[in-house]
Write a protein that binds this DNA or RNA. Structure first.
Length: 517
RNA sequence: GGCGGAGUAGCUCAGCGGUAGAGCAGGGGAAUCAUAAUCCCUUGGUCGGGGGUUCAAAUCCCUCCUCCGCUACCA
């Protein structure tokens, strides 16, 4: 038997300085939908998420909370891990940068880079604001009193020099540009690709990859006064989670290079410039693709702690239900663009697309089968033209879904599914099975079977995005758990007449206005 | 400032050289299997302003206006 093709997809590892919010949920849901889609399509999938736990900010937050960094990160990391059950995530692994498998792997990568002459000891010099504990570039500074300079925060800065290890990033500009050229799908969407190319064309400086100003990090091998730059540390998780530095290990051999790193647009550069440069410098393969998605505003406003409009995923799921939320974030905006998470829009999708269009379609069909076909899957007969048209649309969905998922166009994939939902509702009205019940019961049975079979296709293909509801629909259709893969689509997996069906129950209740307190 | 992107129906957007489109919202109607869900019809736009190329321009070119992104070492 031939080996199944593999697919390795990652979320960024989330920085534990922050509690999980809609943004984290969004990225992870998108990856989950992708992972589920590929699994259903027969791929050997690896889906990774985790937490990024080192750095000065974490240390400060831990101190502020009166905890040790390890105790603090244990706690916050657990809140990210809890997103798994909350959002029905299917990740195969969850990595923390404080785990030994990671820290030792990163140190191995460091040693490799040193051996290859890609890292050298130098001096980092820059404008440093003691109050902010941060360096700033010349361009960020504004003039202060008496010829001094001020940071954007208003803090005074001073010229500071400290020893630091540097990565020879400047040597990789041409190689990176060639990589972008030869792999046009490496950065998506295209607008982001242009940005990255423009950035690299502007010239690259060597990158400071160690710090001596704090110690909450991975020690530099052979020079423990330094800890590693958090991005070198963090990015490497994608490899340490599959066994790096054991490049001959089963996991690494199977899954590296990753097929897709999903990221927010704010961390694009780290993934498309530094990361591939680190890897090429170490003689390793870069990931195949990096997709930068957009951000959500909340009722038209930027989410921020000060505005108090940061969405807690638990509250969001409690209010709307999980599958509606998953559906909304992937359906509402073209993936890659920014979107607005408004109550009105969520309810519109939930009541319109899910409850009225899809949920009600399933309900009306299953109820008619329940009442008029003895609660068993009806007997199909000869196909009328209208039947062929509808079934043809259903059969044609898989290829279209693949094309959309291939480029992470979740919104397109869902729109195509819902096109068939609409066709199905029109078909019900045109065929009017409630009238056929009296005039031509055999034809009624055929119509209901065609609808059930179409719904089977829709539900199987909707599983990646709304796994709970789609699974419920399939259960109500009497489709066994092991007959829900994409290989079961088409006539060969068709619903079998006579199969006893459970009593139908609504899958998507409409959202009704909450009591105003 | 430089580079890139976008401005099309009330809203969100598709169209990217050949008689202005979709979804939602609004208006009217049909049907009654169904979560009063569904289906049909319909109102609505001088496609940001101006100029140009063309038999023909949302669609190509120029220019102006507005908005957004990027312009490196917090992550």
């Amino acid at each position: 038997m031939a080996e199944r093709p593999t697919y390795y997809v990652t979320t960024p590892i989330y920085y534990v300085n922050d509690s999980p919010h809609l943004g984290h949920a969004y990225t992870t849901i998108a990856c989950d939908a992708l992972a589920r889609f590929m699994r259903l399509d027969g791929y050997d999938v690896r889906f990774l998420t985790g937490t990024d736990e080192h750095g000065q900010k974490v240390k400060k937050s831990a101190t502020a909370a009166g905890k040790s960094p390890q105790a603090f990160t244990d706690e916050v990391s657990e809140r990210f891990r809890a997103l798994g059950p909350l959002l029905n995530l299917s990740n195969d692994d969850f990595i923390r940068t404080t785990e030994p498998r990671h820290t030792s792997g990163v140190q191995a990568l460091w040693r490799t880079l040193v051996e290859r002459g890609e890292i050298y000891l130098g001096t980092y010099a820059g404008w440093y604001a003691v109050r902010d504990e941060a360096f700033y570039t010349e361009s960020e500074l504004s003039p202060g009193p008496n010829g001094s300079r001020l940071a954007p925060s208003g803090a005074p800065v001073e010229w500071v020099e400290e020893p630091s290890y540097f990565f020879r990033l400047s040597a990789w500009g041409e190689r990176l540009l060639r990589h972008y050229e030869e792999h046009p799908d490496f950065v998506a969407p295209d607008s982001r690709r242009n940005e990255v190319i423009a950035f690299v064309k502007g010239g690259l400086q060597d990158l400071s990859v160690s710090r001596t100003s704090f110690s909450w990090g991975i020690p530099v091998p052979g020079d423990p006064r330094h800890v590693m730059y958090v991005w070198l540390d963090a990015l490497t998780n994608y490899m340490t989670a599959v066994g790096y530095p054991a490049t001959d290990s089963e996991l690494y051999a199977r899954y590296w290079p990753a097929d897709l790193h999903m990221v927010g647009k704010d961390i694009l550069r780290f993934h498309t410039v530094y990361w591939p440069a680190f890897l090429m410098a170490a003689g390793l393969e870069p990931p195949r693709r990096v997709f930068a998605h957009g951000w959500w505003t909340m009722e038209g406003q930027k989410m921020s702690k000060s505005l108090g409009n940061v969405i807690d995923p638990h509250a969001m799921v409690a209010r709307y239900g999980l599958d509606p939320v998953r559906f909304f974030v992937l359906r509402e905006v073209p993936f890659g663009a920014d979107g607005d998470f408004s109550h009105r829009a969520v309810v519109g999708r939930l009541n319109g697309d899910l409850a009225n269009d899809f949920g009600n379609l399933v309900q009306r069909v299953l109820t008619m089968i329940g009442k008029n076909c003895g609660a068993r899957m009806p007997e199909p007969g000869a196909l009328a033209d209208a039947d062929k048209v509808l079934l043809g649309a259903a059969y044609g969905l898989l290829e279209r879904q693949r094309a959309a998922y291939r480029v992470q166009a979740f919104h397109t994939a869902l729109a195509e599914l819902w096109d068939v939902v609409g066709r199905s509702n029109r078909y019900v009205d045109e065929q009017a099975p409630w009238a056929l019940r009296k005039t031509d019961p055999a034809r009624m049975a055929m119509v209901l079977w065609v609808l059930a079979e179409t719904i089977r296709h829709l539900a199987i293909l909707a599983q990646p995005v709304i796994p709970g509801a789609a699974g419920d629909v399939l259960r109500q259709l009497g489709v066994a758990d092991d007959r829900r893969r994409f290989a079961d689509l088409g006539p060969k997996g068709a619903l079998v007449a006579g199969t006893p069906l459970p009593a139908p129950a609504a899958v998507f209740p409409r959202f009704v206005a909450e009591e105003t307190a």
